[in-house]
Every structure is written in C-alpha cells, then in structure tokens.
Simulated scan of single mutants.
Amino acid sequence: MLMSNSDRPARLHYLANGFRVLVPGDHVVCAVSGARIALEDLRYWDVAGQRAFASATLATEALSPQ
C-alpha cells in the first residue's frame, strides 16, 4: 500500500544552501509562530539551530541577539 506525504510534517536537515529530507512530508512548522510551511515555500531556516521560519521577519527576530 502506498502512503501519501500529504498532511504529514517532514523532518529536514538544514544546510547552508538547502536542506535534505530525512523523513518525507509536505510541510515543516515555523519555530516562532507554529505556522505550517509547505516545503516548496520554505525559504528561511537556521542551520546552527536546525529550525525553520515562516518569514524573513520572524527569522531576523529569532536570530537577533537580545
């Protein structure tokens, strides 16, 4: 039986210029807002922290020193 990746979170390994899919899925969750991010829309992530962000603004806020 084939399993669909629809509506399943993916597990990714974030790299400097991309990411590698460790567990197939159709989205990841934003580390700040909790929003679902479709893999084809994923543009912002933290390599050191291995976390995804829904927007440049959220990434900047999360990665800025306090």
Rank of each mutant, 00 (worst) to 15 (best):
L2C: 07
M3N: 12
M3P: 00
M3E: 15
S4D: 07
S4Y: 01
S4V: 11
N5A: 11
N5Q: 14
N5K: 12
S6A: 07
D7G: 02
D7P: 00
P9K: 03
P9R: 04
L12D: 06
L12I: 06
L12S: 11
L12Q: 10
H13Y: 05
H13P: 02
H13D: 10
L15E: 14
A16L: 13
A16H: 12
N17A: 03
G18K: 09
G18H: 10
G18V: 03
F19I: 10
R20L: 01
V21M: 07
L22V: 14
L22K: 02
V23F: 04
P24Q: 15
G25Y: 13
D26C: 11
D26G: 09
V28I: 05
V28K: 06
V29Y: 09
C30W: 00
C30N: 03
C30H: 02
A31R: 15
A31G: 04
V32W: 02
S33G: 14
S33M: 09
G34L: 12
G34W: 05
G34F: 14
G34S: 06
G34N: 08
A35M: 15
I37Q: 10
I37E: 15
E40F: 15
D41K: 13
L42H: 11
L42I: 09
R43N: 01
Y44K: 00
Y44G: 00
W45T: 02
W45P: 04
D46W: 06
V47C: 13
A48H: 05
A48E: 12
A48C: 01
G49Q: 12
Q50R: 01
Q50Y: 01
Q50W: 04
R51L: 08
R51P: 04
A52I: 01
A52Q: 10
F53T: 09
F53W: 04
A54Y: 12
S55P: 00
S55T: 13
A56Q: 10
T57E: 07
T57S: 03
T57P: 01
T57C: 00
T57V: 02
L58H: 10
L58R: 05
L58Y: 07
A59T: 02
A59N: 00
A59Q: 12
A59C: 13
T60W: 04
T60L: 14
E61G: 00
E61I: 11
E61S: 08
A62H: 04
A62P: 05
A62M: 09
L63G: 00
S64A: 14
S64Q: 13
S64H: 06
S64M: 12
P65Q: 07
Q66V: 13
Q66I: 03
Q66H: 07
